[in-house]
């Protein structure tokens, strides 16, 4: 990252810049995929855990009276959107772990003595890797949900779902990478991930609509970023796509699909700006 200054000084069109950044980013991404291929347990666990949520939690309320949930949908269908978002979220939350291990074991030093054209390559590689894995996990969950009879969003709906997941994964990856450079070791990082994970799920509309919650929890859910990802996806599952309609009835007012997308976008951009100085310092 420190090289950004250099690059601008020398002119951004310096020959081969993009090719070299591409070469180092691809090589670093390849390494992460090789690790995953040879140690696939995190990928498998990342798919099994949400599946368990989907099957067990979905079954838990399967006999809930009809008409209880907004739009008269079944609980399984309601839960689907929540579990999809949760899968992408918890996958991306782990993005910092490989970076943390590289810091701790000294592999990062190997990268830092190399003449990387841009040290952002290290960050890019993590983002590409985690994004693709999280989206893959989410697609598997979506496929399973549709097999369970919980519906399928249709083509334009699917694009919206993927777009929302992409933005969310970017935001959470930024957060996790930031933590990986800010915290002293992997024990602390795992502790933070552990503590952040479930409460964010419960204090969102993943498992129940806001109308079921006491006022204070409703407020929490209505400002929880996960809610802004869940509700438009739920709407995409519910019928023909229209981002203009209200998808979230929050205590502070109604929010439509565009509103949710804007909040997520804003969050992602904000987080990237927040961790930039930290990355610059740690990777300088």
């Amino acid at each position: 990252m420190e090289n950004t200054v250099d690059v601008y000084a020398q002119g951004i069109d310096e020959q081969g810049f993009i090719l070299e950044v591409l070469q180092e980013t691809l090589a670093l991404t390849r390494r992460l995929y090789l690790q995953l291929l040879r140690r696939p347990s995190t990928l498998v666990a990342g798919i099994i855990q949400p599946l368990i949520w989907l099957v067990l939690f979905g079954a838990l309320f399967s006999k809930a009276p009809e008409g209880l949930l907004p739009g008269g949908m079944t609980y399984g269908r309601f839960l689907g959107a929540g579990v999809i978002v949760f899968t992408a979220f918890s996958g991306a939350l782990n993005a910092g772990l490989p970076v943390m291990f590289d810091r701790e074991f000294g592999f990062l030093n190997r990268l830092l003595v190399a003449p990387l054209r841009s040290r952002s390559s290290i960050v890019f590689a993590s983002v590409i890797y985690i994004t693709s894995i999280s989206l893959l996990q989410s697609l598997v969950i979506m496929g399973t949900a549709s097999l369970l009879g919980y519906g399928w969003p249709g083509v334009s709906g699917l694009l919206v779902v993927l777009l929302i997941l992409l933005i969310l994964v970017f935001a959470v990856t930024a957060l996790s990478l930031g933590l990986a450079f800010a915290l002293p070791g992997h024990i602390e990082l795992i502790a933070v991930i552990f503590v952040a994970n479930l409460p964010l799920l419960f204090a969102s509309t993943a498992l129940a609509p806001i109308s079921f919650m006491p006022t204070w929890l409703g407020w929490l859910a209505a400002i929880n970023p996960l809610t802004f990802a869940i509700e438009p996806i739920r709407a995409a599952y519910g019928g023909p796509l229209d981002l203009g309609i209200t998808v979230l009835h929050a205590p502070y007012g109604d929010v439509n699909g565009y509103g949710c997308l804007s909040v997520l976008m804003g969050l992602t951009i904000g987080l990237f700006f927040l961790i930039r100085p930290l990355m610059n310092r740690k990777l300088a």
Partner: peptide
């Protein structure tokens, strides 16, 4: 990197040095 082979590590190194 314990998971990579020696050759893969050297290939990565080659890419880092362009």
């Amino acid at each position: 990197d314990k998971i990579l082979t020696g050759r893969e590590l050297l290939q990565l190194q080659g890419d880092l040095y362009h």
